[in-house]
Design a protein around this nucleic acid. Structure first.
Lengths: 337, 337
DNA sequence: ACTGGCACTCCGGCGGCAGGAGTGCCAATG
DNA sequence: CATTGGCACTCCTGCCGCCGGAGTGCCAGT
């Protein structure tokens, strides 16, 4: 591909992103010194349109990038824009003073929404890559107990279940058995060991134990139902122009956890920023929006994904830089704290 | 106040709510059989406008209700519209199969959003009206422990804190002391008894115990920071006309827990539906929206508030009926489960 | 291969115009 | 005295046509 044509495409993308208006050949050469005349640029534009990178909303209007154009832009043209000092500072200080996992994730989603000016989504760390720190068994009455699962990422899951009559000693026994089997293991290991535990319980707590273990296994496997935090929804109002096509579908997607999770995509490796542009993402209603996501976690493991969703016409370099920076920082913070 | 004038006001409100358009004298007498001519209605309308219950967007347009008009409507004219069988059924079945408190509240907010077609808000049950069911102490490593507080409403709060070196026996002791003092008491009683416990701990766990008690007291007093669940945000898109005045401010309010909590208002008695219309509510940005809220809880106590927020031009009778029904049902469900 | 020039297209804003819905007022009526 | 029919008036809304501007495509010239 011709070098200048790429330059022209880059110029079109950046101009369109900042102005939100179709960009013509004349204004293009005015703002970027390409060293050629508008007529030459027009030829290049015609070629770019022929190849499907740009399009015009109507005859004799300026050009706007297509999804394919954006794709080429982020793949080959996106110079990683360094973060401003203010942004760096914001990222560094935002998490200080966070109290628990909930708090960390809520702060993160706010931060991400603020620096990108988009709708931010942060997924709770999955259980599967973490280890079991503690299992607690609590009585809720004569016939109900509550199981609490605490993982190395600080995540706490609880579930109540109906059981037969029991006393405190039974619970203490059960607690010891469960912890002996689970603590220190990864969730998959813990699941396996709990499974073998089923036959080995003393008869007195056998029935209750089996119920508890079944519930625990459910909790350990509940990765699919993992929760998300959303923030920065008001940023959608910046695109009041295309209400029906952009705002409404995004709001609807945000309402559905399942959709959101699929939108963030498979948990990718940490430190790799994924961009899904327009129709590349899995919901046809969201074909006018893009998703910029990244995994986050410790050096060894990726725990979950976070990212933003916004109109296809967004500032990809900045956004990608911000998402990556936030993902890195949160991963480090959670690994330490 | 003249009886027919009230009828006219009622007709204006209902017509405007359903049509979203200023309503004139002619179409009014057509749709409601008031037994008088349009001219007579015009006189009444002029009077109602004089008294500030209705207004016209511009000269020679139809009338729309003012906030004052809506207020009179809900106070004196709102015949409680009974729920449709379908709605009743939805409410009865929506909570069946709920797993834990989170689940209950999420289902509730969805239900409320669905039946009212508005944005729904549900507040987590406050601690203060509930009793302590269990306090759990878990080791998170050599220098960290986690405190978990479980209340009679099923609410679970956790908080990690730094402590000095400790072993399992210390934790067991501490756990027993804390539970002995707290379990079965209301949160305020529990706070008091924990306070007196400070001096009575054995020396071995004294330091750790003081830290734990301080944290627990914080948790017991954290009523103010109580969380909320929001749902039905896409319903906002039904008012795409006045984007700036309705959609944006609501989205911004939803982002701020503090604002939301103030919006729901002081926790009122259960079974009383509060309506705050337009400028009656505490944020000037929300002067075009109304809030319909109700407390929920057991027979004896009110735990928290739930409600909806929507444009002032809403169907108050239906909405109030729905909010009340949902609040009742959730209260009953949580009291039993 | 690039450039300047030129004719052409299409959007968007603006003004004028007509239709319709609604009002206020007034005189008439039971 | 409340109610009513009639009437003139106001104002919004949609529609049409017009015009300017921005942009394009093409072609001939360097």
């Amino acid at each position: 591909m011709d070098d200048r044509k790429l330059q022209v495409l880059r110029a079109i993308v950046t101009d369109y992103v900042s102005s939100q208006e179709p960009v013509g050949s004349k204004s293009l050469v005015e703002r970027h010194d390409l060293g050629v005349s508008p007529a030459t640029v027009r030829n290049d534009m015609a070629a770019l349109e022929e190849e499907g990178y740009i399009t015009q909303p109507h005859t004799s209007a300026g050009r706007i990038p297509t999804d394919k154009g954006y794709r080429l832009f982020v793949d080959r043209l996106g110079s990683v824009k360094p973060l401003s000092p203010a942004e760096k500072r914001a990222i560094q200080t935002f998490l200080s003073g966070a109290m628990d996992l909930d708090d960390v994730l809520h702060r993160t989603v706010r931060l991400l929404a603020q620096v990108t000016q988009q709708v931010a989504i942060v997924q709770y760390p999955t259980l599967s890559r973490s280890t079991v720190r503690h299992v607690e068994v609590v009585s809720l009455g004569a016939h109900r107990i509550m199981l609490i699962l605490i993982t190395s990422t600080g995540r706490v899951e609880q579930r109540a279940l109906e059981v037969i009559e029991h006393d405190e000693e039974d619970l203490a026994d059960l607690r010891n058995y469960l912890n002996a089997a689970a603590v220190g293991n990864s969730t998959s290991q813990a699941a396996a060991r709990l499974h073998t535990l089923v036959g080995e319980l003393p008869e007195r707590i056998d029935v209750m134990g089996q119920g508890s273990i079944a519930t625990l296994l459910e909790m350990l496997n509940s990765e699919a139902s993992s929760r998300v935090v959303v923030g920065g929804v008001p940023n959608l109002t910046r695109f009041s122009d295309d209400f029906e096509t952009t705002v409404k579908p995004v709001l609807e997607a945000l309402e559905e956890q399942v959709v959101l999770l699929r939108l963030l995509g498979e948990t990718t490796t940490a430190d790799v920023v994924t961009v899904r542009i327009g129709q590349e993402n899995p919901f046809k209603e969201l074909r006018t929006t893009s998703v910029v996501a990244s995994g986050y976690g410790s050096q060894e493991d990726t725990w979950a994904t976070l990212g933003i969703v916004g109109p296809t016409r967004m500032d990809y370099p900045s956004t990608m830089a911000s998402v990556r920076a936030v993902a890195r920082y949160v991963g480090r913070f959670l690994s330490e704290g």
